[in-house]
Design a protein around this nucleic acid. Structure first.
Length: 150
DNA sequence: ATTCTCACA
DNA sequence: TGTGAGAA
């Protein structure tokens, strides 16, 4: 937020950079997570000594990774989509590929929904069995139960 | 505050 | 797909 004048080397070429904690804060993830993505080859921040320097482009990549994650894409799927982006062209290939990935995701989700519906139905069925079983026990004799103690 | 590595779910 | 601990 604050234009920083206190960084000797960093800001002189109008090259904005971010520290790992800058981006972690901005995106609401831990620094650990960002390092993890780097380890997976999803981003390649510059180095200044040991410190990572993230460029605006790294920042966008992280934003896209997180966006993909939100719709349930695997990290691998996120990369596949992102790496297909080519600023020089139409990116119709990328878009078609993304649509395929989304369709695939929908299929998985719908199958899971069917599985859940199925389990829910089974649950209800077994519960009904239990309740029938219980009522067959207490039905014969309800009057003289044991609640007169105290 | 950041980095790395190893372990762990 | 990440998190936590310990050391530098």
């Amino acid at each position: 937020m604050l234009g920083s004048l206190h960084d000797e080397g960093a800001a002189r070429l109008s090259n904005k950079t971010y520290t790992i904690s800058d981006l972690a804060r901005e995106f609401g993830v831990t620094t650990r997570t960002i390092r993890f993505y780097e380890e997976k080859g999803m981003i390649s921040p510059l180095r200044e000594g040991q410190k990572r320097l993230f460029t605006p482009s790294d920042r966008v990549r992280i934003k896209l990774i997180l966006r993909g994650k939100r719709i349930g894409l695997s990290l691998k799927e996120c990369i596949e989509v992102i790496d297909m982006y080519d600023p020089q062209h139409n990116n119709t290939d990328q878009l078609h590929s993304l649509i395929d990935t989304i369709d695939s995701r929908r299929q998985t989700l719908q199958q899971q929904q069917r599985d859940i519906d199925d389990m829910l139905a089974n649950l209800d069925q077994i519960k009904a069995l239990c309740e029938r079983s219980l009522s067959s026990y207490i039905a014969p004799d309800q009057g003289t139960s044991n609640r007169k103690k105290i």
